[in-house]
Write a protein that binds this DNA or RNA. Structure first.
Lengths: 389, 389
DNA sequence: ATTAGTTTGTTTATTCGATAAACTAATTGT
DNA sequence: ACAATTAGTTTATCGAATAAACAAACTAAT
């Protein structure tokens, strides 16, 4: 059983200090003591340890507040680099960040055929990672870890892709493959979970304790942040909302059921709408977005329809979770208010307790970087523990 | 900020010891040390405190295991009594339990008119509480607290009923009313939340860390247990699933929208079905249950239909939460497998990741007592902290 | 320039909880 | 009778946070 002792106490307080420095840098020891409630001497001792671990740096003296000048502390951004990868359906987006989550290298490769064999795709991935590693700047700890966000069902503990229908993959032991090749810790998570943790650390969710990140792209998924942490459910399969039923006897879905949200509120639904009302195919999602923004009526209507349907799905989740905030990410929200206004209207209308609380519904702040940055945050969060507000 | 210190350490460990005694009673100090991993002397010290607080009792020697005989420890059931109340739409169910959650007194009063004025209803409630208090056995601490489960939207922190549509109540400061009258701590929660915590402490959810309790009666609500604790959401309004949209352009609902789950899977839906296919009205839910069990074909079909619809709602939640377990409570599951079989079939069919994990879907173990016992558990859990497995 | 007051950060002594080790107590099996 | 075993207590120690005293560095008023 998980009993408590002094080791736990120190762990908790040390992480509180580190998180405080991360969030409020530059900050002095005295200020840390003030905002955390820890004793000055406790803060000094913990900061000393963080300094010897090189996670934190002294940055010289700050402005005097009418007495001795404070010593500014900051995160040591150069303690190590992190690789974050968004394994998309027809692209791989790879970024390298420093310890503060600042992107210092980025590369996107587009892939023609969506259904590469796992072998070919993983070879591409490994080449990309190798390229990043050799070009990485020298740091204290080198590459700390690799995070990968995958569009599919993932076993996070085992680093296993159980199923990625849009890639045509089943049962891929991705973690052990990458770890064995590079000897660096690897974390694999679902694309929506990664997006959620990305927004929590670096995006629109920084200040929210409980929020939902809705990834609306080829498919629909949700990442759930509860009490400042990703909620993975009992077997790590939470947030599979793409196949939430929103229409009892609705459009048949590839999953074998009917009326799934994905048939109404994803790229798939958008393409169907365009095909039906504009008789156009062969457009990419980005074409349609550009057209809608440029004023094309059918494209706008298509996004309004999809926004309305997504609003229904969002309302269902708000009713269940009562979050402070819902962040809409992935490709669809790139179109902006055309989608978001309808979505907000419908969600508010169908939110039962909207009289008694307000939910902010915001587009992603990281846009198409949410997943890759979240993948990096999976690694970073291991060092910080959870970012306590 | 919530920093850690030795006080916290002791609190945690003491609650671990108390919970272990609660769950495994009778148990010796040595055994507690073994199962918790705490040191023998730590356990002895903490048990001593619990003994002087009279929360725990020594029950004499147990069987020797080949050495000195152990001293059996148990919860002191008589340390105090707890009142738990289910404030139903047309009844009040009131129970008194001892510290172990065993019911020692129970009374149900049925009320003709659903829409009593709050004043009249609260007067009834106070009379009932008074009756319980005078008839209570003498204990160390008397009545420890009063828990009340309410069918509506509740602010738990403030003990405030924001809205109870089925009672026709708005903005009732129930906690302060009852606390001022009796001078005993009062806890108010939503009926589904109370049901969930009841099943967690005393029913089908004892061994599950994450589960959903679905209250399917006049309305539909959910209580969400995450990490062994009730998840209330950001403003305490989680689990309002009655107005989850399951049919985009479905049956109009009193909430102003259309296609809400409540129109398909509650008593309301059952009555509508019976009216339409059997042309009978004036039946209570219990009449229909009895008829269905007795073999009446239309009643059975009605439950099968409602079960299927409820299964869709349950599948939506399973997809979002990935719980270990879903417990179906309140009136509808009293009919048994007629409902549950259809519900399970449909839920399994629509659960996207069902290939990768199994969810148990069980009827409530506490049946119509879930809410009242959960209301009592709201009080008890304050003394135990959360029951850590 | 002097001095009082303030702010920052360190040092020292104290407290408190968990723990290991040594102990007492009680029981079984041979 | 006595060795082995199990239950529970006592004692000494460790290590974390803390308060209080201190030293250092600065501002501002005189």
């Amino acid at each position: 059983m998980k009993t408590a002792d002094q080791v736990l106490v120190k762990q908790i307080n040390k992480m509180i200090v580190l998180n405080t420095i991360y969030k409020k840098r530059p900050i002095s020891r005295a200020e840390i003591a003030k905002v955390t409630g820890l004793n000055k001497s406790t803060v000094s001792a913990l900061v000393d340890e963080l300094l010897t671990e090189e996670l934190v740096l002294e940055m010289g003296a700050g402005e005097s507040q009418g007495g001795r000048r404070p010593v500014n502390l900051s995160i040591n951004k150069e303690v190590g680099n992190i690789i974050g990868i968004d394994l998309g359906v027809n692209y791989i987006l790879s970024i390298m960040t420093n310890f503060a989550g600042e992107i210092i290298w980025e590369k996107r490769i587009d892939l023609q055929h969506a259904h590469n064999s796992p072998g070919q795709r993983i070879a591409d991935l490994q080449t990309l990672i190798e390229e990043m590693i050799v070009s990485a700047s020298q740091t204290v700890r080198g590459i700390i870890g690799i995070g990968i966000g995958v569009p599919g069902i993932v076993n996070y503990e085992q680093g296993l892709i159980l199923s990625a229908p849009n890639l045509g993959w089943e049962n891929i032991e991705l973690r052990s493959m990458i770890e064995q090749k590079f000897g660096i810790p690897v974390f694999i998570d679902n694309e929506a979970n990664a997006g959620a943790i990305g927004e929590k650390w670096f995006g629109a969710g920084k200040r929210a304790d409980e929020f939902l990140y809705i990834s609306a792209g080829t498919g629909i998924g949700a990442g759930i942040i509860i009490n400042n942490e990703l909620y993975r459910g009992s077997k790590g399969l939470s947030g599979e909302i793409g196949h939430m039923t929103v229409s009892l006897d609705g459009i048949p879905c590839s999953c074998g059921n009917a009326g799934c949200l994905e048939e109404y509120a994803s790229e798939k639904a958008l393409f169907r709408y365009m095909k039906e009302y504009a008789c156009v195919e062969e457009l990419t999602i980005f074409n349609i977005i550009d057209n809608a923004i440029a004023g094309d009526e059918v494209s706008r209507k298509a996004f309004e329809y999809v926004g309305k349907c997504l609003g229904i799905g969002v309302a269902n989740l708000i009713n269940a979770f009562n979050p402070q905030l819902v962040i809409i990410g992935n490709s669809l929200p790139l179109v902006g208010d055309i989608l978001m206004n309808e979505l907000r209207r419908e969600a508010e209308k169908r939110c039962f307790a909207s009289k008694y609380f307000s939910v902010k519904i915001l587009p992603s702040q990281l846009n198409m970087h949410a997943c890759a940055m979240g993948a990096a945050a999976l690694v970073i969060s291991r060092l910080y523990a959870s970012p306590v507000s």
